[in-house]
Amino acid sequence: MSGLATRIIPCLDVDRGRVVKGINFVGIRDAGDPVEVAKRYNEQGADEITFLDITASHEDRDTTEHTVENIAREVFIPLTVGGGIRKVEDIRRMLNAGADKVSINTAAILNPELVREAAQRFGSQCIVVAIDAKRVADVDGRARWEIYTRGGREPAGIDALDWARQVAALGAGEILLTSMDRDGTRDGFDLEITRVITDAVNIPVIASGGVGDLDHLADGVLKGGADAVLAASIFHYGEYTIAEAKAHMAQRGIVVR
């Protein structure tokens, strides 16, 4: 086994500069402040932080930039920013604000060349393509998944496996794979699609969607083959700390930091 540690990545959903979805940290004065929350995760030993901007209106995007700047000034682990990234200029702004990676979803589907252009301009290492996949009716007894856009509301009519291969070929440095069937269920990752996608591409795959307990994280790696695991609610609600998650994964034989 490689000495590279499997990454555990907490995800913050941020709306107009405030963390949304119940945050329940003991000892944080302002649980809605993304900087405070990011610092807490950093102290707990998070390997990276993902910041998902769910701000609806374009005007409020400046707030996002400031938030990213403030986090980057105080948290010295990698920061990925996703949500609302439409064009190369948006990527440049987020990287300049202090993001290490930018995650693209809908814009990549509408214009796959954006992935190539961004990778050439900024380097593959900072371009993450987020894939929201939903299981569709099996064909000839084999499972199939299709990708969804606009936060999982609209089917794009594209096969998830084909899309994963395509974005890797276009120069994406990483895939953030979310199962729309599992997201929010706490039933665990969709291990089947995680395995199918991670085996099909040579770039790292982050599993996301459905984590309800620490075994789910470990299963994502041991059974799904994920290179990193992302979770939101189990950390936000204070059920588990990052350190507990790491201890559990280590117990199951996974290399962690």
Partner: peptide, 21 residues
């Protein structure tokens, strides 16, 4: 390299991304 393999012959992803010793 593609493929990049570890000493046990297991495939390693590229980029080399994350925390290593």
């Amino acid at each position: 390299g593609e493929p990049l393999l570890d000493s046990a012959g297991q495939r390693l992803k590229v980029p080399h991304m994350g925390w290593n010793r």
